[in-house]
Simulated assay, not measured.
Amino acid sequence: MGQKEILAVLSGFPVPSHPSGIRPLDAGYINQSFAIEYEGKPTYVLQQLNTVVFEDVASLMDNLNLALSFLQDPDYPGPELIHTREGEPCLTTSSGEYWRLMTFVPDSSSYLFCTSERMASEAGHIIGVFHQLLSKADPEQFKTFLPDFHSLSKRLEQFDKALAQASSDRKKEAAPALNFVQTKRAQLLEKEDELLRLRVCHNDTKMSNILFSKKDGKALCLIDLDTIMPGYFHFDFGDALRTVVNPATEDERDLGKITFNRTYCEAFVSGLSKASPNLSPQEIRYLAHGAQLMPFLHGLRALTDYLLGDLYYRISYPGQNLDRTQALFQFTSLVESETPFLEEVIENYFPA
């Protein structure tokens, strides 16, 4: 995507036509994103939505618009959506591309890993604020445009189909991961059918989707709002915890670098509790389950993609999806061994 094409897209929005800079943002796996700068400062984020992943862009944007109407609070200075010159939430080009423009949150930064106890506490707190604000929203008004997004049974069904058609070479390379799936699937499926309160969830609360103030380190808001849909609180809890307590990348090859930082874990749960997200006793009981479920789900999805020939996630080298799988499964095992500690921490900060 060249600068001329980006400027043509930008002309469809009510913003100055001559930015001082256009900088690619490479943090995400799915959308193509650019920072649009004026006078040398990032002012907007322009994104081309991936319509292979997000086939129902209209529903995605409806959910985003609705969520942003609730995510307005002095303690939550999040991004704003810039509508097109025609008043549409996103721009559709003649070639069928979808582009969205949002404000860049000033003096903010995101991080792949948690580096301090305070950062862990802030991460927990902002996720609590996010859910507290959206607790006023009716989940039934939000569209499920990615059906079964965090459904373990559905992801296992997709995995089984991928396994049946995978090449013998890929199955051989993935043998340890395939065995791990078989040992964990029944255990994690046991809790899937229990009824919990339906909430409006972010559904992708990893550390890199939390913005922190460059001035004082305060967590400001969540970004990458493409997966806002109805869901369960333990989805967001488990997804966040896996990147708060573990300093290794999702595709770390040295499994010895994958750890569970107990200090950060307790700080995260403490920060979450201070935001008073009004969790039910049943939701509290599911938090530790979510801590195991989410890394397993992400690992399972990466493994499924590997078996299919790397169709979904962008990869930078052959075998990266398998590396992701093995790292995520290693962390899943680590969380299982830390579950008694995690349950004790949860009980201390969310007493019955």
Rank of each mutant, 00 (worst) to 15 (best):
K161A: 11
A162W: 08
L163N: 13
A164G: 12
A164K: 14
A166V: 14
S167P: 11
S167F: 10
D169E: 14
R170Y: 04
K171G: 10
K172P: 02
E173Q: 12
E173L: 13
E173C: 07
A174R: 02
A174V: 09
A175D: 10
A175H: 13
L178W: 14
L178A: 12
T183W: 09
K184D: 03
R185V: 07
L188S: 01
L188W: 00
L189S: 14
L189C: 10
D193R: 02
E194D: 14
L195Q: 13
L196M: 04
R197N: 12
L198S: 13
R199D: 01
H202T: 04
N203E: 05
N203S: 05
D204L: 03
D204H: 10
T205D: 09
K206C: 04
K206M: 06
S208H: 11
N209S: 10
L211H: 09
K214D: 12
K214N: 15
G217T: 03
G217I: 08
C221Q: 11
C221H: 07
L225F: 07
L225H: 05
D226A: 03
T227A: 10
T227K: 11
I228G: 03
M229W: 04
M229F: 05
P230E: 07
G231E: 06
Y232P: 02
Y232E: 08
F237W: 01
G238F: 00
D239N: 05
V244H: 08
N246I: 02
P247K: 10
T249N: 12
E252Q: 15
R253K: 15
R253A: 12
D254Y: 06
L255K: 08
G256M: 08
K257R: 15
K257W: 08
K257I: 05
T259M: 11
T259W: 11
F260N: 01
N261S: 12
R262M: 06
R262L: 11
R262F: 00
T263G: 12
T263R: 11
Y264W: 13
C265T: 06
F268Q: 09
S270K: 15
L272S: 00
N278I: 05
N278V: 10
L279I: 03
L279F: 09
S280E: 14
P281M: 09
Q282A: 11
E283Y: 05
I284H: 00
R285Y: 07
Y286T: 02
Y286H: 05
Y286S: 06
L287D: 09
H289D: 04
G290F: 01
G290P: 04
A291Y: 03
L293R: 02
L293S: 03
M294P: 05
F296T: 05
H298A: 08
G299M: 11
L300V: 02
L300F: 01
R301T: 04
A302F: 05
